[in-house]
Design a protein around this nucleic acid. Structure first.
Length: 103
DNA sequence: TTCTTGACGCGCA
DNA sequence: ATGCGCGCCAAGA
């Protein structure tokens, strides 16, 4: 009955497991949750999460290491701030994936 | 119920 | 590096 909840919980758990100072891509999270082709589902799920959620959503970026929000937007800045405050360095507009890649 | 949209990813020119 | 198309799949209109 709550298969959807399980799926969400699974992805939620994976994201919650990303260490401080590390980042993971949507595809990576989806894969670890058992849905290697549902990268979009991860993003969709995060989008629906409450704003006061304790989930470290900011540690999820796209496979290029870029923030998936329009450059300059509020959300973009918010995520960038959070990442910087965790010691994650940026290479221009991309996260230095080489140094901060989780897995 | 069908069509469009989107916090993505990947291959190819 | 840059742009384009296609695959995936659930939510919203």
């Amino acid at each position: 009955m709550n298969a959807d909840i399980d799926k969400e919980t699974l992805i939620y758990t994976v994201i919650a497991g990303i260490p401080v100072g590390k980042v993971a891509s949507y595809g990576q999270v989806a894969g670890l949750a058992g849905y290697p082709q549902n990268s979009r589902l991860v993003g969709r799920l995060l989008k629906m999460m409450p704003n006061d959620s304790v989930i470290p959503w900011h540690r999820v970026v796209n496979s290029q290491g870029k923030i998936s929000f329009p450059a300059g937007s509020e959300k973009y800045q918010e995520q960038r701030e959070k990442l910087l405050s965790e010691g994650i360095s940026f290479k221009s507009d991309k996260v230095n994936i080489k140094l901060h890649r989780w897995i």
